[in-house]
Nucleic acid binder design. Structure first.
Lengths: 273, 273
DNA sequence: GGGGATTTGTCATCCAGACGACATTACGAT
DNA sequence: ATCGTAATGTCGTCTGGATGACAAATCCCC
C-alpha cells in the first residue's frame, strides 16, 4: 500500500539507492511524499534560521541579543521557569525535552547551530513547559521576547521564515508521532539515525568517512536515543548491537556511522509490515 | 520522582482535585506546569484564528477566499497533492492524518471551526504530506497560498497570531509525543477526552449536561480514537467499556460525556507510574 | 593516575496490548 | 422495509519490549 507520487523525474526513486555521497538531505527529493519519511520536513525544521536572514536582519537581531556560554549539562531553562527569551544556537547543541509525571524524559528536539527555539512561550508569556539543556559545550544568543516580536514586526520576511520553520516543525513532529504509533523499535532507530545523519553531517567528523557512509555527528547516549524514540535503554542497546553485528552501522569516536544507509532505509519502506 | 515546579500558590496543586465545575481548560491554570498536561497549549493550538482577527482583517482575508462544502468523508486533499491552499474551517470538523507505509492511519489533528490549517506546505510549495478529510459535513474557506502570504505581509498582527498558533501546536504535539512514549492506553484515552472536552465544549450538545459533566462534542469512532492515540481498535473498545462500567464516562447520542472528570484526571497525575 | 560516576552490555521474567476471528448491533441509502 | 456497510463488543493467543538486576567497560575530574 505504497502511495508513491512522482510527477516528474520518475527515476528519482531509483536514484535513491545509488546515492552514496552525502549532499545531505538531498537524497530525499521533492517528488515522492510517502517514501519521504519526513526528511524534507525534518531538514526544513532544522533550518538555519540565523544564516537564512539577510545581512541587515542578522545585525538587527544580534544587536539586541546577549551571548551565553553553557557547559555540558547546563540547564538553559526548566519547566516552570518564567524566562521569556527566544534563543538561537551559535554553536553546540541544545536538548529540548519534557518530563512525564513519572519522571521519564521525552526528548522533543535537538537544536543545532543557527536554529531558533523557545518561541512557543513567546506570545503568551506563560511559563516554560519544557526543559532545555546543553548537550555539549554550547553558545546561545538570547533575545528578549519583546525585542524578538519587534524584530519580526520590522522584518516581515523574517516573520515568514519563522512561520516556515514552525510549520516544518509541526510536520516533522507529525512524522515522529507516526513513527511512535506505528513502528517497532528497530525501525524507529533507523528513522532517527537517517534523519540525524541528514541534519548533522554538515560538520563531518575527523575520521575518514568511507564511501557511502553517513555520519550521525551527534553525541548521544543510548539513554538519549531511548528518550528520543520512546523505548527503554536496554532495548536500544540490544537493537543497536544487532545493527552493528549486521554491519549496518558502526561506532566511530563517540557517535554512529551508518555503513549501509540502504539497509536502514529498507527497514522504513516495509516498516513494521 | 515528581518534579513539580510551583513558584507561588503551592496549594493550587491540591485545588486540582477539588475542581469539578467546568470553567473548561481553566482548571489547568498557569501555575503548575508539570501537572498541566498541555491543556493550555492544547487550547491555544486550537485557537479560533478567524475570530481572533480584527473586523478589517477578517474582511480582507475572506475577500480572497473561496468557500467549499464537504460531505462527510470527502477528501479535501491527500498526500502527494499539489494543491497549495491554506484553509480555515467555517463549520464542521476536518481530520488531518498521515498514512504509514503499512497503511495505518495516524491522526495528527482535528481542526474545528475557526481553525486554520494547511500552512505546513505553504512556503515550500511542496506536495501535501498528509491527508485532510471531512469528519462530518463541513464548510471550509480556501485561500490561495499566495494570497495568504500577502495577507500576512499586510497584517503583521495576524502574522504574529499565526506564529502563536503554530508554536502552540508544536507544544501540543510535544505533549502528545510524551503521552505516546510514556502512558498506557487508558491514560492516553483519558488525556484525549479531557483535551477534546476542553476545545469542543463551545457548542454544547442538546442533552442536558449533568452538573460537573464535560461533553466531548466530537463524533469519533473507536477506530478514530485508536488512530489518535496509537492503539488498536479493540483495546480502545475494551478500555472505554471499563471506564463506562466504572461510571467515569457515558455515551450520549454519539459522543462521550465525561461523568467524573476527576477520575480521568487522577489517571494523568500518577500516570503510568 | 587513580576512583567515583556514567555508560554499555546481557540476561531472565513478565505483561500490556496487538492481532485475528468472530457475533452483534446500528446506520444509511435505495 | 431491507440489504449492505460500518461500528461495537468479546474472545483466545502470542510477542515485543518493559523492567530489574547485574557485570563490565569508559569516562572524566581532582
Amino acid at each position: 500500500m505504497l502511495h508513491c507520487v512522482k510527477n516528474k523525474e520518475e527515476d528519482s526513486l531509483v536514484a535513491i539507492s545509488k546515492f552514496t555521497v552525502p549532499p545531505v538531505a538531498d537524497f530525499l527529493a521533492d517528488d515522492f511524499s510517502c517514501v519521504d519519511d519526513g526528511g524534507n520536513a525534518w531538514s526544513d525544521a532544522h533550518a538555519n534560521f540565523l544564516s537564512s536572514l539577510l545581512q541587515e536582519e542578522t545585525e538587527d537581531l544580534l544587536r539586541c541579543s546577549r551571548s551565553l556560554m553553557l557547559k555540558p549539562r547546563d540547564h538553559l531553562f526548566r519547566a516552570g521557569d518564567r524566562s521569556s527569551d527566544v534563543y538561537i544556537v551559535a554553536n553546540g547543541c541544545i536538548r529540548l525535552f519534557q518530563l512525564s509525571p513519572s519522571g521519564k524524559e521525552t526528548i522533543l528536539w535537538f537544536s543545532f547551530p543557527g536554529e531558533i527555539f523557545g518561541m512557543a512561550e513567546l506570545l503568551k508569556g506563560s511559563h516554560r513547559q519544557i526543559y532545555a539543556v546543553a548537550n555539549e559545550a554550547t553558545q546561545v544568543y538570547c533575545i528578549s521576547c519583546k525585542d524578538f516580536i519587534k524584530f519580526l514586526g520590522d522584518h516581515p520576511e523574517a516573520a515568514m521564515k519563522a512561520i516556515g520553520i514552525l510549520s516544518a516543525r509541526v510536520r516533522a513532529m507529525g512524522y515522529m508521532m507516526m513513527g511512535l504509533a506505528c513502528d517497532n523499535v528497530e525501525t524507529r532507530i533507523a528513522r532517527l539515525l537517517i534523519r540525524f545523519a541528514a541534519v548533522s553531517s554538515g560538520n563531518s567528523c575527523t575520521e575518514a568517512t568511507a564511501a557511502g557512509e553517513l555520519c550521525v555527528n551527534v553525541r548521544m547516549t543510548h539513554q538519549d536515543i531511548a528518550n528520543l524514540i520512546g523505548a527503554s535503554r536496554q532495548t536500544v542497546t540490544t537493537t543497536l548491537a544487532h545493527l552493528r553485528k549486521r554491519g549496518a552501522v558502526r561506532i566511530v569516536d563517540h557517535h554512529i556511522h551508518i555503513v549501509q544507509p540502504d539497509h536502514l532505509r529498507s527497514l522504513l519502506e516495509v516498516a513494521a509490515a
